[in-house]
C-alpha cells in the first residue's frame, strides 16, 4: 500500500459478471495469473451471494504497471456479462471508453449507453464444443483478442495451471474458439488489436 497516485495511464479495470457457478472467479484468476507473468501488478476482488450456485456473482481485476493504491474497480475498461442477472448491476461503472462483452444467448438486455457492446455466442460455442460450462473460457479467448492485456502464451500457461488435466484439452479448444469468434465477427471493437492466431 504505497504509491501516491490515483489511477494512472495504462491501468486496466476488468469485471466478469453473471450468475454464480459460471466460472467468473476462475476466469479472473486465470487472467490474473497470466497478467502477473507478463509483468502486471494485479488486484483481484470479488463479490458473490451466499448460495452455492446462482445469484449475482462478479470478479474484478485491476491491472497496473505500477503500484496499485486502491485495489477495487472504479471505472471499467471491460465489462463481461454472461447472464441476465448481471445485466444492469455494473452500469454505474461504465463510460464511453468501456467495452461491454455480453453472452448473446443468456443476456437478453445488455446495458444501453455510449459504450461499445459486443454480443458474442460464448454459450452457444461452448455447447458446440461439448460442454456449455466452458463458456467462461470461450469468453476469455474473445476478451484477449479484443483487448490483448496479456500474451496468448501466458494465458495458455495460466489455463493449464488452473484447470484439471482431464479438462485441459477442452479448455484449450474453448480458448481458441473464443479468439476465433472475434476474427470471424464483423464490426468488432478493436480488430486491429487482435493478436495473430497461433
Amino acid at each position: 500500500m504505497t504509491g501516491e497516485t490515483g489511477r494512472v495511464g495504462g491501468d486496466r479495470q476488468i469485471r466478469f459478471s453473471g450468475s454464480g457457478g459460471q466460472g467468473l472467479q476462475l476466469s479472473a484468476r486465470i487472467l490474473a495469473e497470466a497478467a502477473l507473468h507478463d509483468g502486471w501488478s494485479v488486484a483481484h476482488s470479488q463479490g458473490y451471494e451466499p448460495t452455492s450456485r446462482g445469484g449475482l456473482s462478479r470478479s474484478d481485476l485491476v491491472l497496473s504497471r505500477g503500484v496499485i493504491d486502491y485495489p477495487l474497480v472504479t471505472s471499467l475498461d471491460v465489462l463481461v456479462i454472461l447472464d441476465d442477472v448481471g445485466a444492469t448491476a455494473s452500469t454505474s461503472l461504465l463510460t464511453h471508453r468501456s467495452l461491454v462483452i455480453v453472452d448473446a444467448e443468456r443476456v437478453t438486455e445488455p446495458p444501453l449507453g455510449p459504450w461499445t457492446v459486443q454480443r458474442l455466442a460464448c454459450t452457444a460455442t461452448a455447447r458446440r464444443l461439448g460442454n456449455e460450462r466452458t463458456a467462461n473460457v470461450v469468453c476469455l479467448g474473445a476478451l484477449l483478442a479484443l483487448t490483448p492485456v496479456c500474451t496468448v502464451d501466458s494465458l495458455t500457461a495460466a489455463l493449464r495451471d488452473e484447470v484439471s488435466a482431464k479438462l485441459i484439452d477442452l479448455n484449450l479448444e474453448a480458448l481458441a474458439a473464443g479468439r476465433a469468434l472475434i476474427s470471424q465477427t464483423a464490426g468488432v471493437a478493436t480488430p486491429a488489436a487482435a493478436p495473430a492466431a497461433p
Binding site: R29, A32, L36, W40, S41, V42, A43, H44, I68, P71
Partner: peptide, 8 residues
C-alpha cells in the same frame, strides 16, 4: 474485502 482480495 481485504480478506478475499488477491494482490501481487
Amino acid at each position: 474485502t481485504v480478506g478475499h482480495l488477491v494482490e501481487t
